[in-house]
Design a protein around this nucleic acid. Structure first.
Lengths: 161, 161
DNA sequence: TATTGTTATACTCTATAACTATA
DNA sequence: TATAGTTATAGAGTATAACAATA
């Protein structure tokens, strides 16, 4: 199963010139940037997972805790804690499901929607400042690459205990 | 300063179809995957920053603590702690610089080099399993996009206190 | 006095285990 | 008994502040 230009016993990841090496190198670097950037957002300062949670609930109102946890990639207790913090901050509304009272239904509060919009705007502005250095063709190439990568990195299945 | 297909007051990040939105969506997702994958690596289980540190010292032997911290994106105390753990695990060698005894010189131990190679091999194999679904053209597009993104997301400068 | 790194301490985030409530 | 979520607790990772050693 040969995938890259170099043989697998070469130093490709260490040399940094194939897809695997680039992913290991560039993704953590961008992640650091995003974390720092989000933390500097005033008004509702959101962590990256918190921001992603709000975006998910914007797209999927009335989702359950399990559904959000699965998408974000957190275990239920961690997600419960994070959601609770967002509820306390009045960014989310949490209510019991009518059909199955074990489930909760989550949705953005008006406050949460406004905070999300502000955070999005600021993030987009910041990223735009960086991406402005690129040609439209380069930007299109990046969009295309990310769209290809998006469906590939799904959450690992639970390791059977 | 118009950069994207949509106006900035539209819901582009929330719709998820421009470069900024894709970065916010896809990068954390891949990062989660990498974290989980590295954690499952047996032999020397390394966190993502630990792995990056070893790669950096493979490429830059005898670097100082400050140089590594700057590249990885950690403050000195955090980096010092991490390096110390790697020294204790016999993956790194730390010695005082001869010219300036305030500085330390860091390099991989033979153990560290071997651990890095094993970790790299496993990571590459895992990523290859994912990327095998793509055509060579798609892989080339991804490499190109990541190479474009790599120099753009450098560590934020220290906020002046 | 300025710089390099370490130690002390605290905070954030996440996980596992035990528990509650509902089905 | 099985499932959705919460609470209790612990561990990893990072930051700021105070410190030590060297320049």
């Amino acid at each position: 199963m040969k995938l890259f230009a170099r043989e697998s016993n070469s130093a490709s990841v260490l040399a940094g010139d194939d897809a695997a090496a680039l992913i290991m190198d560039v993704v953590p670097q961008i992640m650091n940037y995003l974390r720092d950037e989000m933390r500097l957002n005033r008004l509702p300062s959101l962590s990256v997972p918190q921001f992603r949670t709000l975006v998910f609930l914007y797209r999927h109102p009335n989702a359950s805790l399990s559904q959000v946890a699965d998408y974000i990639g957190l275990k239920l207790p961690s997600m419960s804690k994070m959601v609770n913090a967002l509820v306390v901050r009045k960014l989310l509304i949490r209510r019991a499901s009518a059909e199955d009272r074990r489930c909760i239904r989550l949705r953005l509060s008006p406050n949460g929607l406004e905070g999300l919009m502000q955070s999005r705007h600021r993030t987009e502005t910041q990223l735009a400042r960086i991406l402005v250095a690129l040609t439209p063709e380069q930007q299109a190439g990046i969009r295309e690459a990310l769209q290809i990568l998006r469906p590939l990195f799904v959450r690992r299945p639970e390791s059977a205990p």
